Amino acid sequence: MTVDATRSPWGSLSLLPWSKGHGTGNDFVLVADPDDTYRIDAEATARICDRHQGIGADGLIRAVRSQHVPEGGPLLRTTPEAEWFMDYRNSDGTAVEMCGNGVRVFVHFLIDQGLVELAEGGEIIIGTRGGPRAVKRQQDGYVVDMGPWDLIFPDTAAGQGTDSLVEAGGMAVARPALSISMGNPHTVLALAHADELRGLDLHRQPQVDPVPPAGTNVEFVLPSEPLVTDGTGVITMRVHERGVGETQSCGTGACAAAAAIRYWAGRGAPDDWAVQVPGGVVSVTFFDADDGVEHVLLGGPAELVATGVLS
């Protein structure tokens, strides 16, 4: 395990200040590292995120200025206002393109640490491996422009409405599903009954065929009956995240789930969705952006619950 802090103001490898935060139960260890002082490798990340022998979290987020990370140079050339980069890794240490709950908690952390000032109604651009993301502060949380969504296997999806089969614990047979990109990959399947959703065993990774090239998160979605209430679509979701396992929430997964159900519902499906996850409720809204492409907004809370120093 390597935590390289030789340039640290603390002058010790054993002093690593951290905070713990979550967005609808999707939890993260956060480290402020503006000048790229700490270099936390995959093994260290996994140990820190271990729920029995570490702090415990779905992932680790390092707050670093974009100029200090390899992905930051190209990002700053096109989006110079993206000063801060969300260096996010899953609990197994793998780097991840984007995390919708994580970016809300990340901005809340930047404010808490005094690294940025953001009044209610204000907006900030954050750098991620999935590209820049605009985050607006609201009274009850944050709203993120998650960018466009897309079909991962468009030719197959266009022909039959699904593009893959998913096997999972608790399901007697494989189910058809739809793979959607939110900057990171997702595979969504719909269930018919609440008992099916409750009966899933997500301790082991679901099997997807064909699996997207970078692997995939898998969302199991129960549409409400009726699907639309007062103009808002309502769905309930459980998710298995690659490199983590089942989590209380997944922001990009909620967007992908709403996109899939909306795709299947066809013309007349609403733009506004409420997605119920084990950790709470997030909002998903589809809109036509200035670039002429349909984007997705994700809204929800962000909380910090603890701070400490790792030894």
Rank of each mutant, 00 (worst) to 15 (best):
R198E: 15
G131V: 14
P213F: 06
D41M: 06
R137D: 00
G280R: 09
K20A: 13
V29F: 08
L200A: 03
M86S: 12
P212C: 02
L227V: 10
K136C: 11
G233R: 02
I48N: 00
F286E: 06
E219Y: 06
P212E: 04
D288K: 13
S311Q: 13
A257Y: 09
E120S: 03
E303D: 12
Q207E: 08
G243P: 09
V3Q: 03
T79R: 13
L222W: 03
A306E: 04
L76C: 12
T45V: 15
V284R: 00
W149V: 08
H203W: 10
F220S: 00
G127W: 07
L191S: 05
A254V: 09
L202C: 03
P80H: 08
T216Y: 03
S164I: 06
I261T: 06
V275Y: 05
D35K: 08
G245Y: 07
E123C: 14
P270D: 01
I124R: 00
G279M: 00
G268S: 05
L202M: 08
F85L: 13
V96R: 04
A257R: 02
Q160E: 12
L30N: 07
G245L: 05
F109S: 02
A269R: 01
A134S: 15
M1S: 14
Y142R: 01
A95L: 15
D195T: 15
D150Y: 07
F109N: 05
G130P: 04
L115G: 04
G268N: 02
T2K: 14
A63N: 07
T37N: 08
L60C: 03
H68D: 09
Q248C: 11
V173N: 14
A177D: 12
G147Q: 09
S181F: 06
V281W: 12
I55R: 01
V188T: 02
E117V: 15
L30G: 04
W264F: 02
E219T: 01
